[in-house]
Design a protein around this nucleic acid. Sequence first.
DNA 1: CGTCATGTTGACATTTCTCAATCCTAGTGG
DNA 2: CCACTAGGATTGAGAAATGTCAACATGACG
Lengths: 231, 231
Amino acid sequence: MQVSSCNISDCFLCSSCLPEWKALVEVKKTTLRFKKGAQIFGEGGKVTGIYFLYSGSVKVHKEWGEQKELIIRFAKKGDILGHRGMGSDPIYPISATALEDVKLCFIDNAFWEATMKSNHALTHKLVQFYAVELQQAEKRMRNLALMEVNARIADALLEMKEIWGVNSEGYISVPVARRDIAAYAGTIYETVFKFLSELTQKKIIATSGKSIRIIDEEKLKQHIKTKKSIG
Amino acid sequence: MQVSSCNISDCFLCSSCLPEWKALVEVKKTTLRFKKGAQIFGEGGKVTGIYFLYSGSVKVHKEWGEQKELIIRFAKKGDILGHRGMGSDPIYPISATALEDVKLCFIDNAFWEATMKSNHALTHKLVQFYAVELQQAEKRMRNLALMEVNARIADALLEMKEIWGVNSEGYISVPVARRDIAAYAGTIYETVFKFLSELTQKKIIATSGKSIRIIDEEKLKQHIKTKKSIG
DNA sequence: CGTCATGTTGACATTTCTCAATCCTAGTGG
DNA sequence: CCACTAGGATTGAGAAATGTCAACATGACG
């Protein structure tokens, strides 16, 4: 973990019209770096501050027991991490792990709290940000409960494309292990494997190791159906 | 829908140490009333303001298609409703329906926004509130993805008891239709029915119509296990 | 008393997970 | 350079969980 100057041109808040935020981060020129696979913070750990993802991609996940995890969301550069810890209980309810090498801006608690008190625009923006996060969490809740497994996997692919975009060859920019896709879709590795094979055979997607290219987005979307008469 | 004076002694924010909030609501003496079963606001509707539940209980739910719904959470008096609409898009992502007759304080958008700008303490409190909601949503996401059906039903019962408490006879204060329990647990009516019958037979719970009494909380908790090796 | 809605139950179909066998691939030591 | 092994990828058979459906019971209500 090195510390260096933080270029914030891509940060969530400042890029969304908040010069105050730029000023904030320039006061705290703290950049943390983590290697691919490293844990940025862990469920149950003490909340020490809030992170802004400057570059790289991250999975935010929640464990249950030893071998079970659910990936709550994927984060890309510009996203905020650790804001779930701002409730009354200063313990992280989730973990964040780097999927690629990442660079983050770190703002410690005291500084962040002080800034929120003095900077209305920032706080107001933050409220909006939370509202959007909450909407997404609830949409995902519905998907996990109401969609069939294959639909959830298809949805995961589309989400990843949406979040990270594609590279020059059309592959989703961040390669993700099948195990992680499973952990995101709430299913097991084998099921993901079989469905991706099927999609490849039907030429709806193409894979190259962990890289995935969506060939026929329309057909992929047709797999997204709800199941049964819940409720 | 009548309008009358609003007694706010039980509202979430003021009961949690915010005299400013008391002042706020006293300015807007607006109480709305809804009958049991009435919809307070609907998914897709335009966001006109934010609600504080003064009395009664509410289900917050998200639809998919005609016949499928997932209950996101149950709300009790003192809770906030409609705060998910505070994002950039002024459309409710969820619906709220009264489970009993309810009384709400309603604050329109303009007034609320103005208050947030001038009242730091309130806004700060709100950020904490959002963080907690987000944590709960993510916990629920994990439960829906990782727990087996019976475990989710057991969990639903415990949640309802936690949220609403029990009456003098030990029954969960708010009677909930089995269909709603199913919609909360992400399963179908018949499955809930069968599991509740089984629990009744084992004398872990007792039911009287829609009212449910948890007899042996320990045994009920033993049903809460995760399934398989997700991820 | 008839009818409709809802509760209750069981048989069955489907989905999805579990497990284990086999197949690769890369790295290792001879 | 080649067998050898470990670990992950791939696949299929079968089990278990859970949803579907349909039949029957019960109770509310006109």
